[in-house]
Amino acid sequence: MKNLYFILFFLSIGNFCSAQVSLDKEKLLDLYQTQRYAEAAIYLSSIYPPETTDIKALTQIAYCNMMSGNLVEAEKNYQKINMIQPQQIPVLFSLANINSRRGNKKHASDYLSQIIFVDSLNFNAYKRLADFTDSTALKMQYLQKANKLNATEADVAFDLSRIYRNSKDYQQAYDVLKIAITADTSNMILQQALLPIANQLKKYNEVIITGEKLLKSGADGNVVMDVGKAYFFLKNYKKALTLFQMLERMSMQNESVFYYMSLCCREMKNYEMAAKYAKLTIEESISPNITAYYNLLGGIYDEKQQLNLATNAYKKGLSYSPNKNSYYRLGLLYDLKLKQPKSARTYYNLFLKSKDLDKDDQPQVDYVRARIEEFAKAKR
């Protein structure tokens, strides 16, 4: 759209200049050709008074201001044009673009809606409207209309298929992408987007054929994963495992990768490796912050005097990983509230043995050591 405006802009220069004898045609052309749009805007504004209603002059000034980044003045000029000649689509697009660049999505959407009112078959307006809405339902509606007007446009097809995929409407997502891919068989982005959807539709051979071609252009992790899954579902466990191990070497392993690796090893009767990857699957599925979360929960129960629940929460956190704070809090709980010095001493000692103690923990260390000495004296 920007290029279209640019071409129309220069085509109009000849007529515009010849109609205005006071303009220095060569100077204006030089400013345009050297892209000195700010100077061109100033020059044109010096020729025409602020109250001018000359549409061609206002259009040139507005365009120069927009191209030079003076969006405030550009908007003023385009709004003036819009008042003189309302509902001109190029002007409305310019106003939408200016508001988009200034972060005002609502005003940009309003101008695009005006374009739809004037031209209900305007593909670009629907496409842009989809970008500006946060509503999934409205985004789908705009993209569906744009896709109906131009089913081969790649960006719209990609965005619409993603919405269909998220709503688990895999057949719709597949159909949208296939039409766009047929029109652009070299579009690797669309082909890659198709793979997980084709897997959901059990089109495993198609995934492998397309995916293997994509892999020749580079081992993209998502493609490797999708092709690996296709091989797995076709029970070619050896090939699938090779691909999943490629992800491991690329440091792109995650819970899902380890899960499929474990399943492959199990199907291949390699139970030792299957167990290894099953354990890694479990580790990947657990947040590294899980102990901290249980500490938070335990602290809440502690403050509410729900001591058994607090104890269980702290211990549950420790079942995932050792934690000095959990040990310290359990020691305090058993010591000061549950009055169980033996259990308190156990957790105090575990706290003192924690490998991650630092100088900030020194006050707690001093306190714990003092309490352990008091326990020893009480036993004498």
Results as ranks from 00 to 15, higher is better:
313 A>Y: 13
246 M>C: 14
267 E>P: 03
125 A>E: 08
10 F>N: 06
266 R>L: 03
163 I>L: 10
203 K>V: 09
249 R>F: 09
334 Y>M: 02
162 R>M: 02
223 V>P: 12
80 K>S: 11
55 I>S: 07
190 L>C: 07
88 Q>G: 12
343 S>M: 02
77 N>P: 02
5 Y>N: 09
255 E>S: 04
125 A>K: 09
325 N>K: 13
312 N>G: 01
215 L>E: 11
12 S>L: 05
225 M>G: 02
336 L>K: 00
357 L>R: 03
10 F>I: 07
28 L>T: 10
84 I>M: 08
160 L>S: 05
1 M>W: 11
309 L>W: 06
6 F>G: 01
160 L>W: 06
48 Y>T: 04
171 Q>C: 07
128 R>D: 12
140 M>L: 12
259 Y>R: 08
38 A>S: 14
35 Q>C: 02
249 R>L: 00
221 G>N: 15
62 A>N: 14
300 I>C: 13
131 D>E: 11
373 E>R: 06
177 L>E: 10
378 A>Y: 00
83 M>P: 01
298 G>Y: 01
71 L>D: 05
86 P>L: 13
143 L>Y: 14
153 E>Q: 15
330 L>C: 00
165 R>S: 15
106 K>V: 02
173 A>S: 07
329 R>H: 08
256 S>K: 07
30 D>I: 00
198 A>I: 13
159 D>E: 15
376 A>F: 01
240 A>I: 01
45 S>F: 03
339 K>L: 10
242 T>P: 02
192 Q>G: 06
183 A>F: 10
301 Y>E: 08
237 Y>P: 05
282 I>Y: 13
96 A>Q: 14
62 A>I: 06
27 K>Y: 15
21 V>E: 15
238 K>A: 13
369 R>V: 02
245 Q>W: 00
12 S>K: 14
9 F>S: 04
173 A>L: 07
115 I>K: 02
26 E>V: 11
366 D>I: 14
33 Q>G: 09
196 P>I: 02
19 A>F: 09
356 D>N: 13
256 S>I: 08
364 Q>P: 03
271 Y>L: 13
73 E>Q: 07
267 E>V: 12
116 I>D: 03
268 M>Q: 09
278 A>R: 12
13 I>W: 10
168 K>F: 04
83 M>S: 14
189 I>C: 01
303 E>T: 13
222 N>L: 11
371 R>P: 10
59 T>S: 11
134 D>E: 10
117 F>L: 09
277 Y>A: 07
46 S>F: 10
335 D>V: 00
276 K>V: 06
